[in-house]
Write a protein that binds this DNA or RNA. Sequence first.
RNA 1: GGCCCGUUCGUCUAGCGGCCAAGGACACCGCCCUCUCAAGGCGGAGAUCACGGGUUCGAAUCCCGUACGGGCUACCA
Length: 494
Amino acid sequence: MNAQIRLRFAPSPTGNPHIGNVRTAIFAWLFARKRGGSFLIRVEDTDQSRRTEGAVEAMLDSLRWVGIDWDEGPDVGGPLAPYTQSERLDLYRSETRRLIDSGRAYPCFCSPERLADVRRAQQMRGDETIGYDRHCLDMTRAQQDACRARGVQPVVRFRMPDEGVSVMEDIVFGHLEFENRLYDDFVALKSDGFPTYHLASVVDDHHMGISHVTRAKEWMPSVPRHVQLYAALGWDMPAFAHLPVILAPDRSKLSKRHGAASVMDYRDMGVLPEALMNYLSLLGWSLDGKTEILTPEELIAAFDLDRVSRSDAVFDFDKLMWLNGQHLRRSSDTRLARAIDKFWKDAPPQFDVTPDARAAARIAPLVRNRLKTLQDAAPLVKFFFSEDLHVDAEQLVQRGMDAERTTALLQSAHDALAQLDTFDAESIESLLRPLAADLGVKVGQLLGSLRVATTAQKVSPPMFESLEALGPERTLESIRKAIAKLSSAAGSPK
RNA sequence: GGCCCGUUCGUCUAGCGGCCAAGGACACCGCCCUCUCAAGGCGGAGAUCACGGGUUCGAAUCCCGUACGGGCUACCA
């Protein structure tokens, strides 16, 4: 393992695991794995008011499902535990102390109201910069103590330089440069003793030995804050890669109202985890503009942060569906059977007979080319799990046929099929094709009637294979029932 | 308002000064294959590379400006 390479995914547990979050995690994970480094998860729960029950577990479940694993994290621990920021408050406090002692940070007792007033006044005046006015910067020790005595809990602000520029060479965006004077003294430690994102992420990334920071590009404007924080703390900066965002088709931020936005929605839809990972990896990254279908292993081998795109990408549901179909088709029979079995166990389809693993294995080869998602399997093979088919007599009669000829046709097929020694697709085919010719009907007419007779569906997997799956007994019985249905229908007025 | 980022077919993208009168993929259309539905194969339509100036023998590719879109400007991340 390459000890130098360490990446982290740092979700804040504020809601359901969003597709965009997971894409960010995938990029970090792919890069860490590609370079033989470590990947860890750190929970950024520094906003008490936004904590959501169960959000961490949901996040971890989503990551696990999509195929991501981690070497260190809140659930598995690790040498640098804890991996949850709310449990690392002492660390942030002591680093803040260092900042204050070196004159790079100071307590601020301003009330939210005063802050709002200052901002409002700046806006009215049309000031170039809007931000904190350093009201508390030069407070004496005595003044500070007086405030504390009044019960005012201060925040700690980081002192930004008045001049100079903060520079970063971003892996995906290249040279980034910001004027320090445009930035105000931001809050590093909140009055409740929790750090802000800026302080916490810098402190943790350093103490956790993070070599490459990957994060959404909306953090780019905060770069100078982080650059200055690293400098003030006397630390080297990790490499940074800001990532473009995933958008909804209307180019707004992706959310529930655009349909499935959480990873689990796709699982429930019957999307394969490797297909989701593949699709998400292609949003903002490409190998060569030609290769699109990649397994997780291939993604790891091919991925690199320097090929990440700079512009945002619109989520294309249709393409995900297509890609899922590709992965489904490339799965081995056993893999596909297991996926279908699992999917049906989690969400049992409306069948007479409860499908088991054997049955799933039986039908998997029949449906593989007909699936976009695992959901698509059930309607195609409903007949296989039915005890009583509801055959529509009218549908039995194919184009250019009538009830009488159809009856004869089915009877011939039945009798011929009954004579078969080996009831497999190949034998059935070499029996039925000549039979159609002998009977003077098209193969399509014969198979069409047989299809309705044995599946009660107008659309089904290929007949020969379907009959083999059904077996001789069920096949012959269905045909007999269909013939009976046909004669009774003929006897009754329409 | 200020700062920052982005802009190649409807969408995802290739392209990193000449190989591009722009390639691949999804979606769309047509044909072929075919027992239905698919899958697959072949082909088509679809981008004056946001716009305007430069630089250069030569620009989608470099520079400047404009427009449009987005982000940040919180004791949220």
